[in-house]
Amino acid sequence: MAFQRKENERTLELFSLIDIVFLLLLFFLVSFAFRLAGEVSDAKVFSEINLPVTDTKLPVIKNDVLENLMIQITPDTSQLGISRRVYVLWPSFEDTTKILRLQAFYRAAQDSTFAVFPPDFLRLPDDRFYASAPCTLITNSIGRYIEKEKFYHSNTHPTVEVRAELNTEFKLINLIMNICSAQRQAIPQVIIRTTL
């Protein structure tokens, strides 16, 4: 039996080719983006807080690369009554690598570098308040941060940033400022994050 070759069926299907190429491109783009953004999107959900609204004359943050140690204070409802949860977000100390705020937040959540104030923290006596887990965390973190900054960037003053929910009690901001004040030679000012 004689078979006849069909030469004309060997033409390239352009649309199918583009189709497959786009499918592959889409797959790799989306999987890559999800790998990067997966942690960030989780962090974004949990770190979305209402900041004080200010006008544009303040220095605006262009890309949210974390340059300083950041203390982030969010509402916490895990206990009876509304309290405050404190996260410590560490920047990268090496000049070659940069870390985004959301990535740092994700790491803080993963590494458990956070602590929760008891719901009645406003009424706590000073000794119990300063001995609480969040105060200890903030104090130790700022101390360690100054040491690391001295080691890595000896010429610059370290700065502490505070990113706190709008309704955060001034007591907590004052606590951070007082801890920095004890290191005034090292930390002459703190930065409060606001939104535009």
Binding site: V60, I61, I192, T194, T195
Partner: peptide, 9 residues
């Protein structure tokens, strides 16, 4: 967008 408000310690 976010901005920075400096406060001296």
């Amino acid at each position: 967008g976010e901005a920075k408000l400096y406060i001296p310690t």
